[in-house]
């Protein structure tokens, strides 16, 4: 990732986070058919945005007891966000590529 892209990413997420007083925003990227990071610790009320950085479509979903969602599929450069409102462990996957799996620990 180039410096410019990093700055752009930081700035963009910062803007999105500005609206929520206490809650934080985290970014998870889908790159080379893997989630990065593979494990994330957040607090109740925090939001995670999932950004696709691959040249093809990815999906983001969870069928965890704690949080069930399906963000659909989207191409490179696009993202969707999820706010986690209960404490526990959430497994996040890509339906298209089942080897893509990550864990979010909501504390």
């Amino acid at each position: 990732m180039t410096f410019d892209k990093i700055v752009f990413g930081i700035a963009l997420v910062a803007l999105l986070a500005a609206g929520a007083a206490n809650a934080a925003e985290y970014e998870v990227v889908q790159k080379n058919k893997a989630f990065s990071p593979k494990e994330l610790n957040i607090k109740v009320g925090d939001t995670v945005k999932f950004t696709n950085e691959d040249n093809f479509f990815h999906n983001v979903f969870s069928l965890s007891d704690l949080k069930t969602f399906d963000l659909g599929s989207y191409p490179k450069g696009e993202f969707k966000s999820v706010t986690f409102d209960k404490a526990g462990k959430v497994e996040v996957e890509c339906a298209i590529h089942p080897s893509m799996l990550m864990i979010i620990n909501v504390q």
Partner: peptide, 10 residues
């Protein structure tokens, strides 16, 4: 990666 906003970033 945890990110926080400020004016500089904007």
């Amino acid at each position: 990666m945890k990110l926080k906003g400020d004016k500089l970033a904007r």
